Amino acid sequence: MDVLSDVIAVMRSGRPRSASVHWHAPWAQRFASVPGSAGFQVVLEGTCVLRSPGTGDGHGDLELATGDVVFLPHGTGHLLADSPASATVVDADECAPVPSASPYVSDRVDPTGRGGPVTTLLCGTYQLDPSRTHPLLHGLPDLIHLPAARPGRPPELAAAVELLAAELRRPRLGTDAAVPALLDTLLLYILRIWFAEQAAAAAPGASGWAAALADPAVTAALHAMHRSPDAPWTVERLAAEAGLSRAPFARRFAALVGRPPLAYLTWWRMTLAERLLRTTDAPLRTVAEQVGYGTEFAFSAAFKRVHGSAPGGYRRAARR
């Protein structure tokens, strides 16, 4: 897997959730902070404003138009309203649910029944495992705004939104399979677009994951590690994947990623091992082989250095 796909697959836990919400102005809806999650808001119809913490006086309100996408990678609490002047606030869980047979689909309506202009929102939440948070996501801002009107915005984001909205509007055969796949697709498109925009705007010599994913040499090494974490990687072998000599590659990787190549590889292997121990009954020897350790003893020693407990004890504690 490529690094972005791998990161999302490993961090995800539980089921993604999505809902469409219909409001008639005037309205204001509060979304509480949800640690260990990431969420998005898409304006399907109408307009609204978003107020995040610290902008309660109305300054810094973000105006959203039809087609705009907002991503909150750290589950930050926020308020949506038809205008900054709206004062009556309804919590998200107070909206009246419309029954659905699908565990992924929840259609909700404005409980006040006022007859002003309509705004339709598409909301979603991804449950993330904070113990496996990748530094790629650590560095994201609290809020990412992708306006529909921005020149050059890739059309696949709008296509994913429309497909997801269609499944929520009219659940049918296959919806339970389509919705989680579309939620993952939407998340990938959001992150892909944001990283591409950051890389394009970065000054020469910039560091961080946006710059790392835009660097062909570093990306080649990252893909190699994620594709085959069990391979006997050395700095020399990774440098060969990157098409560079050893010393320049090691300096470049550490400058952009924030840690040396083998330190990143060890961290990623232990992250994968933690997931395998939590979610499978594979013998420790098998887990060791899958994350690149020739013996159970070597794997146990490495795992204990990172997590502070032996793999067997970690597995037992995680399942209590």
Results as ranks from 00 to 15, higher is better:
A273Q: 05
L256P: 02
M270K: 04
H307I: 11
F303M: 14
T279K: 10
W267H: 06
L284H: 08
T295W: 06
E241C: 15
Q290S: 07
W233Y: 00
Y293L: 03
S228H: 07
R275Q: 13
M270I: 01
D230R: 09
W267L: 11
R275C: 09
L284F: 06
W233S: 07
E289D: 12
S245D: 15
S300A: 12
L262Y: 06
A263R: 13
R246T: 12
A255R: 14
T271P: 05
F249R: 02
E236Q: 15
L256Q: 02
H226N: 10
R285E: 11
L284C: 03
L256I: 02
T266H: 07
L262M: 10
P248S: 08
L272W: 04
A263L: 13
Q290I: 03
G258C: 13
R275A: 09
E289G: 05
F253I: 08
K304T: 11
T280A: 04
H307Q: 14
H307D: 03
F299N: 04
A301D: 15
E241W: 12
A302N: 05
A298K: 15
V306L: 00
D281W: 09
L284I: 08
R259N: 00
T295Q: 11
L272Q: 13
E241V: 11
T266F: 08
T271Q: 08
L277Y: 01
D230K: 10
G243E: 14
F297L: 14
A242M: 10
L284A: 07
W233L: 01
A255Q: 12
Q290T: 07
A240L: 15
V291E: 05
V235Q: 15
R285N: 06
R251L: 05
R252C: 04
F253A: 01
S228Q: 09
T295I: 08
L256V: 06
V235A: 14
T279W: 12
A282I: 09
Q290L: 12
L262W: 05
T234C: 05
M270S: 00
R259I: 06
H223N: 09
M225D: 03
R269V: 04
V306S: 02
L238Q: 13
A231T: 05
A263Q: 11
E296H: 12
E274M: 08
L265D: 03
F299S: 01
M270E: 01
R278V: 06
P248C: 03
